[in-house]
Amino acid sequence: MHATSTSDQTRRQELADFLRSRRERITPEQVGLPSTGRRRTPGLRREEVAQLAAVGVTWYTWLEQGRDIQVSGQVLEAVSRALLLDPNERAHLYTLAGAGDPSPTTDCLAVTPTVRVILDQLSPLPACVLNSRYDVLAYNDSYTKMFGDLDLLPFEERNMIWLIFTDRDYQARWLDLEGARAQGVARFRAAMADHVADPAWKAMLARLRQASPDFEEAWQRHDVGARENGSKGFLHPEVGVLRMDFTYLWLGLRHGTRVVVYTPADEETAARIEELARL
């Protein structure tokens, strides 16, 4: 019993330290809260995390102090979103809390080994998996050759909307950058209607508005667009112009996670895709 008790205490202390470290790395602006000037401590305050997660301040304080309290998976999910945890951090949170995950991250768990095999088998056609927020969750080698190596980027920057407004190399690969930006913002706004209170979505929106005046201008137009199959043009630095049709293959509920497959729109592009595969 004593060994078990000591183990539980150690785990709760690890949980407390982890929560505090995640809280201290986030600024109010990242989660859509107003800045209140200089702060005595870095990051968010405990009451702000509690507010974002819609939990009691006392309860969250006790959780961060490593007290022996009941923790449900649903509340951990809210805390995870408030702290902007990535999938690995989220899983770590549930493990430390000793709680079962009531709603495993649908977007990320949709990228099963089977889906990854499908992505690989689609080569030489470029393909990726997007979630509803336009995070790029997985991609095949052909997608990397067409758009660049996303593995070199931090997890939070592997997002199509973020890249099209902030990454010069990514921007240079679009024939109609302004059209792609306008369409991307309109579709992002339409998707966000289902997630207006989600801290992760609010944080992404705040980051975009702060990072890009062009995004802010497009956002203020309040355009909305549907996520439908279509066509795009790209300029690859080695093989030239690629005119591609793209098709959504939904992995769950429509407007959620999907595989996006790019196929050549003409014979010239088909030849260039084969050339790209040989690079």
Rank of each mutant, 00 (worst) to 15 (best):
Q171I: 07
F147M: 01
N140P: 06
S231G: 02
D167S: 12
T257R: 03
E216R: 11
K232E: 08
A271R: 05
Y60T: 07
W59V: 13
D176V: 04
V224Q: 15
Q183F: 14
R67D: 07
R38E: 05
P34E: 12
D214R: 09
R67F: 14
G225C: 11
V117L: 15
M244D: 10
T106S: 09
I161C: 02
A53L: 04
E64N: 15
S21I: 00
R258Q: 13
E157P: 11
G256M: 00
L205W: 03
D223S: 02
R168K: 14
E267Y: 07
G230W: 09
Y143R: 01
L96P: 12
M160C: 10
F18L: 05
A54L: 08
D17H: 09
A182I: 11
L276K: 13
P28D: 02
S142H: 05
A97K: 04
R25Q: 09
V185R: 10
R20Y: 01
A200D: 09
G37D: 11
F234Y: 03
A270I: 08
Q171S: 07
R11V: 03
R81M: 00
T10V: 13
E157M: 10
P42Q: 14
W174D: 04
T61E: 13
R209F: 08
L15Y: 08
F246V: 00
P87N: 09
S5N: 06
T61P: 15
T41S: 06
G66Y: 03
L150A: 11
E157R: 00
